[in-house]
């Protein structure tokens, strides 16, 4: 990534799109400390996060999911959830939140099943709610729709809007343009590690550079 700068509006749902290899996941990795930037800043709540460790960034209220799910495979669904809560939180509180969230994505009957035994879509859902265990303020979702069936996806999107109404900031990386265009208020488009466009959905859909990045130059 080079010279790529953008500001995510607080309390809104934003989308980050771009062709494969354009740097979307790299952006998430830079934001969450999995990669350390060679230069530049990541400002969150007026504080520079660049150079902090992933767990430190998480504790400031930034959470994420992964493109290819990274659930804990040989741990049960409940254990996956509980592992995220800090030891300072009382066990009863953590359990109650875990059970609520598990029930919310209809995984209640699988609470004692190993994460690795869930279907891919179920793993996506588990990862989504696992990221919500600590009530984060900034939620980064890397392709939440991939592999999730329509009914559950609708459910997930509804929940996303509910989180937004509570004041949460959400950024989605997604290839499903319906999700992006219908649910995001602001969209950032990347190509080759640079931001090539930014704006509300309607504007992005008409943007020449975006069309070009996705489909190539018109002859």
């Amino acid at each position: 990534m080079d010279g790529c700068s953008f500001v995510v509006p607080r309390g809104k749902i934003s989308g980050l799109i771009g062709p494969n290899g354009s740097g979307k996941t790299t952006t998430f990795n830079l934001l969450t400390g999995l990669l350390e930037p060679d230069g530049g800043q990541v400002i969150y709540n007026g504080e520079n996060l660049a150079g902090l460790k992933p767990y430190q960034i998480f504790r400031k209220g930034v959470t994420r999911t992964f493109q290819v799910t990274r659930i804990f495979r040989e741990m049960t669904v409940l254990e996956n959830m509980l592992s995220v809560t800090g030891l300072g939180v009382p066990e009863r509180v953590a359990r109650q939140r875990a059970e609520e969230l598990i029930a919310f994505v209809n995984l209640g009957h699988l609470r004692s099943e190993y994460g690795g035994r869930l279907s891919y879509g179920q793993q996506k859902l588990l990862e989504f709610v696992r990221a919500l265990m600590t009530d984060p303020d900034l939620i980064l979702l890397d392709e939440p729709a991939a592999g999730v069936n329509r009914t559950l996806l609708q459910h997930l999107l509804d929940h996303m809007h509910r989180l937004q109404e509570q004041g949460k900031t959400i950024v989605i990386v997604e290839h499903d343009m319906n999700v992006i265009m219908n649910h995001c208020e602001r969209i950032f488009v990347m190509d080759y590690g640079v931001k090539i466009a930014e704006g509300p959905p309607a504007e992005i859909q008409r943007d020449e550079r975006v069309v070009e990045a996705y489909f190539g130059r018109r002859r």
Partner: peptide, 13 residues
């Protein structure tokens, strides 16, 4: 969690 996926564990605090 560290055993299962250390990167994810770190990213989850």
């Amino acid at each position: 969690a560290i055993r299962e996926d250390e990167v994810a564990a770190e990213a989850l605090g």
